[in-house]
Amino acid sequence: MTIYSLYILNKAGGLIYQTDPCPGLNKLSANEYLVLAGTLHGVHAIASRISPTAPTPNTGFFGTGKAVAGNCNTSGLKSLETDAFAMYVFQTVTGLKFVLVTAPGTRAQADAAELVLCRIYECYADYVMKNPYYSLDMPIRCDMFDEKVVEVTQVVV
């Protein structure tokens, strides 16, 4: 699975982190990436409103008393397929979105992408959240997090 890009959006839809391990996508200006992030955030929300089936109440938490640590994306935009790339969205309980853009592949690739995003979430929880110099919802400028992301994306590629 070739990973073209990884974006991290904060809970307001602002782009706080971007990395491009492999070339394969068009290069846009910084402003255009911010607009892209905002659009994805919006479409993610809209997608849950046009569902043809009735929404199911979120009983996961009430059933077990434990918060869900994985992908909380049950009704928002989860994946996107085009001719040139596939995009996967992983949302956490705190509203943070991890967006992975890869080469197009089969439906089974979605599981592998989810695993990669899970591992990147772990790196985030360790190297960004536990960094006292990082303020919440601001662009991520942590060296150790960059190194760990490179490690994770290298293993997959």
Binding site: Y127, K130, N131, P132, Y133, R141, C142, D143, M144
Partner: peptide, 14 residues
């Protein structure tokens, strides 16, 4: 072990 100080706080060791 998870917190590398940014350039401005290079000298600080918590």
């Amino acid at each position: 072990k998870y917190a590398k100080p940014p350039k401005e706080f290079d000298q600080l060791n918590c």
